[in-house]
Design a protein around this nucleic acid. Structure first.
Lengths: 158, 158
DNA sequence: CTGGATGCAAAATCTTTGCATGAGC
DNA sequence: GCTCATGCAAAGATTTTGCATCCAG
């Protein structure tokens, strides 16, 4: 029943496929595939962090200094991706929203409040219950996010 | 097993006690108990909604038109309360953060990504699994937070 | 070619801060 | 009385928008 995954190397979706999905989405809506949009998608894909519009913009400028993308384009593309459920936004404590690609494999977080280490896990039973709850309350579930806070084994012995 | 709570009438903490906690907190930090701070706490307590700074400010002005509290005071007090863990903030799709009193009974959130409405629930099975997972991974669990995102019944029919 | 996309800068929001005044303690 | 809190307005941040130009299809 339990299915705990603690490493993050097996991305579930290939970039190629992701890119194709994006292109299909654009075509379907008579929108255009631009180099800026591609780079935004790629940067999101290659980052394991949750990015703010600003940090995403910054990463893009680092990696592609020649192409000076405007921050407005980043905002516009993130909205587009969010509206079509390709990325999700979250915001913890601090100001501003953070975005991540929804296509990466799903996982929850176990966060040590001492040392900050983050362990990822998935529990099938919880996943199922979440769907059930959403259903019972009439929600069309799209996503979820869960964090457990505690003190990790290592920090307990200090 | 399932224990879904969608209404909010069994507040676990009396307002008196909450107020005392707040006063103790202030005293401990050599801060002052002001009428504005009291009204902010009371408004949070009497609201079943998750409030933005602006909506909180609005409610206060409705109920206490004589006392014209500045929005800056609302922001300052919310920061104070959040720093001392008396309130927690959440932020979903839309812009801006929403605050709620942390002293109310424990619950998780179901958030509509269309209209932003937040429904609360508790599921015993999930609570148990969380403890179990933390244990299995050697964590000493302290707390958790969970949000399910989706589209609410109402928005689905639009 | 044509309509959507971009960059830029201005505008609109949202949040924080400085300062003079007012109020707990 | 001191010191912190408040309100106001100005300053900062963040996000959105208008518009001329550019470019994918």
């Amino acid at each position: 029943m339990t299915d705990i995954i603690t490493d993050f190397n097996d991305k579930t979706i290939e970039y190629k496929q992701l890119l194709n999905d994006f292109k299909a989405l654009l075509k379907k809506n008579a929108l255009k595939f631009t180099i800026q949009r591609e780079i935004i998608l790629e940067t999101l894909y290659n980052s394991d962090e949750h990015l703010t519009p600003e940090s995403l913009h910054h990463l893009m400028q680092e990696k592609f200094p020649d192409l000076k993308t405007g921050i407005a384009t980043v905002y516009r593309t993130l909205s587009l991706l969010e509206d079509s459920n390709m990325v999700t936004s979250l915001s913890f404590g601090a100001q501003g929203k953070k975005y991540e690609l929804g296509a990466k494999h799903h996982h929850d977080h176990l966060i040590c409040t001492e040392c900050g280490i983050i362990t990822e896990f998935v529990d099938e039973l919880i996943e199922q219950r979440q769907h059930k709850i959403a259903e019972e309350l009439g929600f069309n579930m799209q996503d979820h996010s869960m964090q457990i806070y505690g003190i990790c084994k290592n920090c307990q012995t200090k």
